[in-house]
Design a protein around this nucleic acid. Structure first.
Lengths: 114, 114
DNA sequence: TCATCGATTCCATATTTATTGAAATATCAA
DNA sequence: TTGATATTTCAATAAATATGGAATCGATGA
């Protein structure tokens, strides 16, 4: 994965609402969530949500499919996978930064988005 | 680690020059590199480099120490470690996105910064 | 067909970010 | 002290980002 793609993905996630959206989509699994539901849950105008979803899609972090009138978004793990690989490879000392040493969940942070 | 800290770290890395700086500092190890050397290597004005280093420092990704007239920056892996943990925990399906499946280096990308 | 619903695009605006020259600060050496 | 060096801060500017109302597009059902 090239640096440009990594930057696009990091920039997509480096925003309060988009990070929250991505977390919701990860939770939601393959079924995904519609743009409208996401706008409601996050609390932004539909047009703003479209803007943010476009960024996530442009970074390759989410997939979209039409289902009747709704457009359903779902997390696509491929890019996230590559980003994690890039960071591990290029931005970690090779010793730390591994999820093995950081895997324990921060329970206090579990409900802050929904 | 709270979402805000993650966002700050991701935003710090989601910029061409800053990502390049961080990679250089990871390569450089604990000895680090001075602000001037970094400005030269990256190819930006000293004041621009100060701006970017301030963002990395504010995100907690780098440490600084004065050594004579120079200020030496070095990578601090703690925050990166936490970010990796947060992403693994909250933004990955729990199945993929693990460095175990993405660990193999992209050799073609090794020299693009330096 | 027509009204409606869900989502996006367009537009205007406000905010944030990035950039660099110039000035200010800190250190050192003569 | 004076001058040179390294870095940051300040100021001005340009560019990118985020926001939401209004208009538009697509799909559905009566």
């Amino acid at each position: 994965m090239d640096a440009n793609s990594v930057i696009k993905a990091l920039a997509a996630l480096a925003q309060e609402h988009r990070l929250a959206v991505y977390r919701l989509l990860v939770q939601a699994g393959p079924e995904g969530l519609s743009a409208g539901i996401l706008a409601d849950r996050i609390g932004v105008a539909p047009s703003s949500m479209s803007f943010h979803l476009a960024q996530l899609a442009n970074a390759g972090l989410v997939m979209q499919r039409r289902q009747s009138r709704s457009i359903i978004y779902s997390a696509d793990f491929d890019v996230m996978n590559s980003v994690m690989g890039y960071l591990t490879e290029n931005c970690c000392g090779g010793l730390s930064c591994s999820p093995i040493t950081a895997f324990f969940p921060d329970v206090s942070d579990q409900r802050e988005v929904a």
